[in-house]
């Protein structure tokens, strides 16, 4: 088994009960696993089920452990490692505030256009852009905005789902 560290996106369906998120986070911190991104929201209100998406990094053995440890939590129904279980889609939404004037302001709008980011707020000195895409696309966009006056950013973290007809 090679010990190469890789990035994995893991989704879990959990009972939407008090403390379930704390259980998942405590599991990661207690056992020394990484969390690059974590999102959670109810996806089935009739049955009180939430979905947690976690982006983590680790060796194959660690990733296998993370999956098994998550699955062991009593309120967790199902765990799926989207990265190994076939093609999947990852999306993240970000809001970026850019404060600048003159040339830089024009350049910011031009780059936003290329990235299909929308200006959702504007003043005479600032824009707020909304952008959706993969985490790396958002990283690239933020990098370009930095010299153009990026002052504030808020990201949702990764939502992910498998391609094709099968459910998790």
């Amino acid at each position: 088994m090679q010990d190469t560290i890789a990035r994995h996106t893991i989704s879990a369906l959990v009972d939407n009960e008090a403390g379930v998120l704390a259980r998942v986070i405590g599991l990661f911190s207690g056992r020394g696993y990484n969390i690059d991104s974590l999102t959670v929201s109810e996806v089935d209100s009739a049955n009180g089920v939430s979905r947690i998406n976690i982006v983590t990094t680790g060796t194959p053995m660690t990733i296998e452990q993370i999956k098994a440890q998550l699955d062991r939590l009593v309120p967790v129904h199902r765990v799926s490692d989207l990265t190994v279980e076939g093609p999947h889609i990852e999306r993240e939404l970000a809001l970026l505030k850019v404060r600048s004037s003159g040339e830089k302001r024009v350049e910011a709008l031009r780059i936003a256009d290329i990235f299909k980011a929308r200006a959702v707020d504007a003043t005479d000195r600032s824009f707020v852009f909304e952008i959706t895409g993969s985490a790396s696309k958002i990283d690239a966009f933020a990098e370009l905005m930095r010299p153009l006056g990026l002052v504030d950013m808020s990201r949702t973290g990764v939502a992910a789902i498998s391609r094709g007809p099968d459910e998790i």
Partner: peptide, 11 residues
């Protein structure tokens, strides 16, 4: 009985 015991320390 616990799947998380498998391959935890020893493959």
């Amino acid at each position: 009985i616990d799947p998380s015991s498998i391959n935890k320390n020893i493959r």
